Amino acid sequence: MVQYLVSKCGLSPAAAAKAAPRFAHLDSASRPDAALAFLRSQGLTRAQVREVVSWKPELLLSDVDATLDPKFRAVRALGLGRADVARLFALYPPALTYGIHTNLLPRVLFWIDFLGSAKLLMKWLAKTWLLRYSVDALLRNLSTLRSLGVQQSRITTTVRMQPTLITQTPARFQKLVGRVEACGVPPSSGMYMWAFFALHNVSEGSFRAKKAAVVGAAGCTEEEFDAMFRRAPCLVFVPAALLRRKVEFLMAEAGCDATHIVTNPVLLTLSLGKRMAPRCRVVEALRSRGVGIGKKANLGSVMRYPEDKFVERYVLRYKEEVPELLELYPPRLCKGSSQTR
């Protein structure tokens, strides 16, 4: 049977040797042959068959008519094409062991409905085994958010970005809800789900380190950092050391005080090397040539300008008077401009 699993199914010799004892009772290979023939008839490639058999070799002992065929038919009946059905079972082989009406169809239908398409389900199945989670557990987590008053549209938008937001155990999910609440983000806020998303991806220890970096560099309070997080949750995706450097740059080079940074936390999400520093050099060059562009404290606002607006207003407008602007803010940084003159 080892040779059979290697030659027919593509398993490695080691994997085949480990699986072979499960077939010791067979007098012939007729049942495995039938299962393999069926899987291939459904469009599974050799690589996909290997994935399925590697996960659970006993699937080769399944009765085609009673077990395998009904599952393929059931998923196709949802409107998925032959290739998509083959890919679904290859991406998540455990689905071949599910009861059709108890687990398989409810889980597939839930995710197609929530994500909006079978295509998106396939995209996420390639990254994580979404179908392993019971629909009841997923609905409990969604119910928790709805009971807090979070708008369904906001839940849907964020979960489509990262479905694993709702695949946590109820206990871990409640803990995450508590972390968002501790930061003072109200469920009615448009930022609630973004805060939820951010804290799902940033550990408590990492969050504390980033808070300490900003508080230490800006001299603000922890409460002010929480206020910054409420306005721009994505700032916690920036490494702590880089957050500190950005605060120091804004205060030393851009002339921003702590209050300006606290009330404009989106500044800390901007690239230091590709946006803040080059724009600061442009403004300094203009000022050194006597071009009136406002007070230094306004540099914080200049950093936030959309790319087109900044290029048009500060680079292209003055490139004849200050030709070095195109060196300070090279074309690769100006590619978003509507003009190329």
Rank of each mutant, 00 (worst) to 15 (best):
E327M: 12
A15L: 14
Q3V: 13
A217D: 02
L326K: 13
A212L: 02
P163S: 10
E253F: 02
S7N: 14
A212D: 15
Q152F: 13
T156V: 14
L270N: 04
S206L: 12
E223K: 13
A17C: 07
L96C: 11
F207L: 12
Q151G: 03
K56I: 02
V108A: 07
F72R: 05
Q48L: 07
G43E: 00
A16G: 11
A218D: 05
L242A: 09
L109S: 13
A209P: 06
C280Q: 10
L268W: 04
L36E: 08
E320C: 08
A277C: 06
G184Q: 09
P239L: 09
V215S: 00
L235F: 04
V135A: 10
M1K: 08
R50E: 14
K127N: 10
L121P: 04
F249L: 10
T340E: 14
K246S: 05
P265D: 02
M251Y: 06
T128W: 10
A252Y: 00
D84G: 09
L36K: 00
S338V: 14
D69H: 12
F72L: 03
K8Q: 15
G273K: 11
V150C: 10
A285M: 09
E253M: 03
K295F: 13
A66E: 15
G290K: 09
R304W: 01
N141H: 11
G219F: 03
R275L: 12
L299E: 08
R289T: 13
G216D: 07
L80Y: 08
V180R: 00
F310C: 01
L250V: 00
D27K: 11
A195S: 15
L199W: 00
E248R: 15
G255M: 03
A19K: 01
F237D: 10
H25S: 12
L104P: 03
L44W: 00
L91V: 06
L267Y: 01
V266H: 11
P331D: 13
V185R: 00
F114Q: 05
V159R: 01
R289V: 09
Y4E: 04
S41D: 15
P57T: 03
P278I: 03
A254H: 00
D33K: 06
L145E: 01
V311D: 05
L80A: 06
W55P: 01
P278F: 06
A90F: 04
F23L: 08
A182G: 08
A218T: 01
A24M: 04
E223P: 04
S134C: 07
V150G: 02
R245V: 08
L104F: 15
F110T: 07
N103C: 11
R87M: 13
T158N: 08
T167D: 10
C256K: 06
V282I: 06
G116F: 09
K335S: 15
P187Q: 02
L270D: 03
C9L: 06
W194N: 09
H25W: 11
D65L: 12
A126R: 14
S188Q: 13
R281F: 08
